[in-house]
Structure formats: C-alpha cells, structure tokens
Deep mutational scan, measured.
Amino acid sequence: RRPMNAFMVWAKDERKRLAQQNPDLHNAELSKMLGKSWKALTLAEKRPFVEEAERLRVQHMQDHPNYK
C-alpha cells in the first residue's frame, strides 16, 4: 500500500474528531468538510503533516525498495 500523503496524515485524526462531533454525517459529507478545512490551512499549519508524509515516503522506500 502507498504511504499516506500530507492530507491523509492530517485527515486520519481530524476525521475521527469530526465524526465524533457530527455522528449523523455520512462519510461523503465528512470528506467534503475535511477538504475545505485542509484548503483553509496555511502552509505553516500544513508543514508538520507534509514533513510526516515525507518521512513515511522515505520509510516506505526503505521498506519496499521494489515498490513502483
């Protein structure tokens, strides 16, 4: 499986939080909310998630050198 990108790293915990706050929302609505929230973040706010995604990408390359 591919490593998570920055959005997916961020959305993993954010989706849980949103789902707890909005138990009646379907996954499609949660995804739309997550997309809008991600776009609203500044580059500085996204940076930790971008860095974690890069760390995961490098780790994935080391763990699976033949993955394409």
Rank of each mutant, 00 (worst) to 15 (best):
Q20T: 12
V58F: 08
E29P: 10
Q21Y: 10
L43K: 15
L34F: 00
M33S: 06
L18I: 13
A53E: 05
M8L: 09
A6E: 07
K46C: 00
N27E: 10
R47T: 13
N66E: 14
M8P: 02
A28K: 05
A6H: 04
A6F: 01
M61Y: 10
H64S: 14
V9G: 01
K16H: 03
L18G: 01
P65A: 12
K32F: 02
H26N: 15
R15D: 00
P65I: 11
Y67F: 05
W38E: 05
R2Y: 10
L30I: 13
T42N: 08
E54P: 01
H60R: 12
H64V: 14
V50I: 10
H60F: 12
L56D: 06
A19G: 07
S37D: 08
K16L: 02
L34R: 02
Y67C: 12
E29Y: 10
V9K: 04
T42M: 03
L25K: 08
Q20P: 00
E52W: 04
S31H: 12
N22W: 09
L34Y: 01
P48Q: 06
A6C: 00
E54R: 07
G35E: 15
M4I: 14
A19T: 11
S37C: 12
W38D: 02
R1F: 09
E45G: 02
M33D: 05
F49W: 13
A53G: 04
H64M: 13
H26Y: 02
E52F: 05
G35R: 15
D63K: 11
S31N: 13
S31E: 15
R2A: 04
K68W: 11
P23H: 03
N22I: 05
N66G: 14
K46P: 07
L41M: 15
Q21V: 06
R2P: 08
W10L: 00
L43I: 14
N66A: 15
K12Y: 06
K46T: 02
K68N: 12
P65R: 14
L25I: 08
E14Y: 02
T42W: 00
N22S: 09
L18P: 01
F7M: 09
K32I: 05
A19R: 07
R47D: 03
E29M: 07
E52P: 01
A53F: 04
L41H: 03
R1W: 09
E52N: 03
V9D: 05
R57M: 14
Q21A: 14
Q59N: 07
N27M: 12
K39C: 15
T42A: 05
K36H: 11
D63M: 07
S31I: 08
M8W: 11
M61V: 09
T42K: 04
N27S: 12
L41V: 00
A40E: 10
R47K: 13
V9T: 05
K32L: 07
V9Q: 06
N22E: 13
N5V: 01
L30M: 12
P48K: 10
R17C: 02
L25R: 07
A28V: 11
A40W: 05
Q62F: 09
G35T: 14
W10M: 01
R55W: 03
M33N: 00
D13P: 08
L18W: 04
Q21K: 14
K36A: 15
R15H: 02
R15S: 07
R55V: 06
L56Q: 11
S37L: 14
F49L: 03
